[in-house]
Nucleic acid binder design. Structure first.
Length: 291
DNA sequence: CCACAGGACGGCT
DNA sequence: AGCCGTCCTGTG
């Protein structure tokens, strides 16, 4: 779908449409990217760290070879998907969505590692983004593995095998509070093979949610975030406080519970519900809708 | 000092 | 099935 070339030590995605790192990295789906300069971003994904350069047209992956690009970055950035088509479908006859998309036009849904997404969104509960980022960074620093990129303090997100072996005492250093026990138990459950990935991917939505909610500490909201943000399925509409507010304010005209909003979204957005949620969430939070 | 933040659990009705 | 007290920590 998107054309890319190798130039010296870099991979360049040419004339990359429907992307803006601010929109994509700050719409609440991921926590390990940071802007390091005007057009530069730094991030860690799986066993790789990368510097991205974005000039509004081309996306440059610095010091990246074809193998790593195809193995990690290509799927991560969802490069096979046509977001232009998704956006035009979503905003047809929907002025609210049209405005939200106009505002966050550069959002892409990242296909993140399943285990990392589970642990990250366990940590996210009852927390704001700055603290989530802080705890995750601490988690990586203490229990992740060094990445061979010249800088010793760049660490992977720790595996569930590793986390399952960390004692409660040790885990306290990341200051996750009462979420400690969720992290440990869920990590152990994942290691033991308790979660059937086939059901997550191929079951109906209700089955997928029930399967993932077997994990201790995972309720409706975290379950939906994991299904959507690890690229397992896209007909998912996670409802947090911001989405609740934006739906009340701009679609329903009144407060509604999770179940009602979920049904409304399934009816209105169908298979594209997950994309719709991200545009609406980013719009609501940046514009402080309902505050 | 208190309220609340991008929730979920467990016990109670 | 729904309600509610509780859970850690940081911020305002």
């Amino acid at each position: 779908m998107n054309k890319w070339i190798r130039e010296k030590n870099n991979i360049i995605v040419k004339d990359f449409k429907d992307f803006d790192p601010v929109h994509t990295f700050e719409c609440g789906q991921c926590f390990r990217w940071k802007q390091i300069d005007n057009n530069f971003w730094f991030g860690v994904v799986k066993d790789l760290a990368v510097i991205l350069e974005w000039d509004g047209k081309d996306l440059v992956f610095h010091d990246t070879n074809e193998d790593d690009f195809l193995r990690v970055w290509y799927p991560y950035f969802d490069l096979d998907r046509d977001y232009g088509e998704i956006k035009s479908k979503l905003q047809k006859d929907d002025p609210v969505m049209k405005e939200a998309i106009n505002f966050g036009h550069g959002i892409r849904l990242l296909r993140q590692d399943f285990q990392e997404t589970v642990i990250s969104f366990l940590i996210s509960q009852n927390n704001g983004i700055p603290r989530i980022r802080k705890i995750i960074e601490s988690l990586a620093q203490h229990f992740g593995e060094s990445i061979d990129c010249g800088k010793p303090d760049i660490k992977t997100f720790p595996s569930c095998e590793r986390l399952a072996g960390v004692s409660s005492e040790e885990l306290k250093v990341i200051r996750a509070g009462y979420r400690d026990k969720y992290i440990q138990k869920a990590a152990k459950q994942i290691c033991s093979g308790e979660i059937d990935m086939n059901i997550l991917k191929n079951g109906d939505i209700t089955q997928s949610r029930a399967e993932i909610k077997k994990l201790f500490g995972v309720g409706d909201k975290v379950a939906d975030c994991v299904l959507l943000f690890s690229g397992i399925r896209y007909d998912i509409f996670p409802v947090d406080r911001w989405v609740k507010r934006v739906m009340a304010e701009l679609y329903l005209g009144r407060e509604a519970d999770y179940e009602e909003i979920r049904n409304f979204a399934a009816e209105k957005f169908g298979d594209l519900a997950g994309f719709a949620q991200q545009y609406l969430f980013y719009y609501a939070r940046e514009k402080k809708i309902g505050m």
